[in-house]
């Protein structure tokens, strides 16, 4: 699904990613862990196509297509979804309006027809119920006045509605209380599928108790410095990142 090779990314003056390589086969869920400032969000923004993240070397492909040649919305239409570490507030635009517009735009880009209003509403209601979200929240300005946890839930709601091929979850667990963590994890697990891959960025093992990853990678100082099975997360939880400190 996702194949990143020797990726170098510069933000402003600084090189943040320094030759990062990573592959996520179709249908797998991979976790990325790493110390603060390691470049995890930089990786997710780069994959999603945020401007200001300058790729100076390397490649990133989605199902064999060059991702880096596309702009943000083209990547989304290809199926890239990023759950933001800090979701934006957009006053005056209700979440429902926003998601429906996004969904139809993606469908159009893929040459599919628009979703009908009743069908959309039905789906939105069902997904909101799954995530135990108050449907009325979806009628308010997107994320305006929402708590940190509510914003994260809203991200997962959007992911469910947009049904991406590759979901990148950047610290979706931070800010969630214990119950919310469970609900959100269930939501994510429900979206696991043979034709969908996920990249789960987190600081905490406990999320991985809920979302069992196929592989765990350690990102430190701009590169993947170690990879392993789920047991690697437990090891990190216990020993910290010390032994990877000088890896770069």
């Amino acid at each position: 699904m996702l194949k990143i090779d020797n990726l170098h990314v510069r933000v402003g003056e600084a090189e943040i990613l320094k030759g990062l390589s990573l592959s996520v086969p179709t249908g797998e869920v991979h976790a990325v862990m790493g110390p603060n400032g390691a470049g995890k969000s930089t990786l997710s923004y780069t994959l999603a196509g945020r401007s200001g993240y300058e790729v100076t070397d390397g490649t990133a492909q989605l199902l064999g297509d060059d991702l880096l040649a596309l702009n943000a919305s083209e990547r989304a239409a290809k199926g890239v979804f990023l759950s933001f570490q800090y979701p934006l507030e957009i006053p005056g635009v209700p979440a429902l309006t926003f998601v429906r517009a996004a969904l139809n735009a993606q469908r159009k880009a893929r040459g599919e027809g628009e979703i009908s209003a009743p069908e959309f509403l039905k789906k939105a209601k069902a997904e909101a119920a799954n995530l135990k979200m108050d449907f009325e929240m979806l009628r308010r300005g997107l994320n305006v006045g929402f708590s940190g946890g509510e914003k994260k839930r809203m991200e997962i709601f959007q992911m469910a509605m947009l049904a991406p091929r590759l979901a990148i979850l950047d610290e979706t667990d931070s800010g969630l209380d214990i119950d919310a963590l469970k609900i959100v994890s269930e939501g994510v697990n429900a979206l696991r599928a043979a034709d969908r891959s996920m990249l789960v960025i987190t600081h905490y093992q406990r999320l991985l108790d809920h979302i069992r990853p196929d592989r765990v990678h350690v990102l430190a100082a701009g590169r993947i410095v170690a990879s392993g099975g789920p047991e690697l997360a437990l090891e990190l939880e216990r020993d910290g990142y010390d032994k990877y400190g000088k890896a770069a």
Binding site: R50, S51, N71, S73, A76, L88, I90, L103, A105, L162
Partner: peptide, 13 residues
């Protein structure tokens, strides 16, 4: 620009 990017990330032109 942040809001524009956010909307475009979700697929809007």
């Amino acid at each position: 620009e942040d809001q524009l990017f956010y909307a475009m990330q979700r697929g809007l032109s």
